[in-house]
Design a protein around this nucleic acid. Structure first.
Lengths: 152, 152
DNA sequence: AGGGAACGTTGGACCGCCCAACATTTTTGC
DNA sequence: GCAAAAATGTTGGGCGGTCCAACGTTCCCT
């Protein structure tokens, strides 16, 4: 320990800086955990959202997860190629694509959820369960600027 | 139906996801605040670190802020071009570049620090001061992979 | 019927992160 | 002393994530 990795106080005290560092570590941990299944963070999030929301359009998925429509196309393309979801035109609105999870997707989701949860457990290993819950609460209130909390 | 920005529960409860969203918002707020001064987040961080650590080599800066040496070269180049810092060879170790803040850099730093603090205040506007301090504490313990274990 | 809006899609740009390589210089070992 | 090993600064490129502009298709509202 010749030179301690000393983070300047002014920077260390900035929530934006800490959020960036913590998010980078979280992203890295989750990405490494999901790499074994050939899944990336966004793919897992979309797959999980599809499973929870049922047949849903890509636009709704993008709004729910704050993902750009452009990236959503790529993600759904990958998921369709792996036969984890199906993309069929919505008969009631032929603009929309009804994205539905497949049985294989459900099975994969079960595994990736375990891996994701494990990675998040490692991410918050230094926290007590109560602290973890409070962190989630604080982050939720920070992540959404003025959005009213609904549908809990 | 515009009231559909519904975040799935399984995703919303993941610290990694919340960290990503909160970090994205924090980065956006700070970037917008600093855009008026022609500064970016990393430039401001490096400038602040130089001001606090005094004459310091680029390698130490990179280790302190977890910035790749490659990117550090670009950042210091920009700061030197704007005459906010000076880069002179260290007489005691001619491999190193002693980076020092300039009077103009000090003046700019004062403004960017105000802007950065204001952006962080807006970022944590939904939190009480006590909650803000606790968030900083929790994030600090999360962002550090382990005070002794420094790998990957 | 027509105009505005939404949807999916394509293309591209920017930024942050990481790895490999090299010349110069310091430090270490013999 | 001197050669080998390590460190520093620098350059180059690649990868992944985010975002914006545009376009054709389709729906909704007046």
């Amino acid at each position: 320990m010749a030179e301690t990795p000393y983070v300047p106080a002014r920077i260390r005290a900035l929530p934006s800086w800490l959020l960036g560092r913590a998010a980078a570590r979280g992203h890295r941990l989750v990405a490494e955990a999901l790499a074994g299944e050939g899944m990336r963070m966004m793919h897992h999030a979309v797959l999980s959202a599809v499973a929870e929301l049922g047949p849903v359009s890509q636009a709704d998925l993008g709004r729910s997860l704050s993902i750009d429509p452009k990236d959503m196309v790529t993600i759904v393309n990958d998921l369709v190629a792996e036969e984890l979801v199906t993309r069929a035109p919505d008969p009631r609105d032929r603009r929309k694509n009804a994205v539905t999870i497949s049985p294989a997707g459900t099975r994969t989701l079960r595994r990736t959820q375990k891996l994701g949860d494990a990675a998040n457990a490692e991410l918050t290993a230094a926290l007590t369960p109560a602290e973890r819950d409070q962190l989630i609460d604080l982050l939720t209130r920070i992540a959404t600027p003025g959005l009213d909390d609904r549908c809990s």
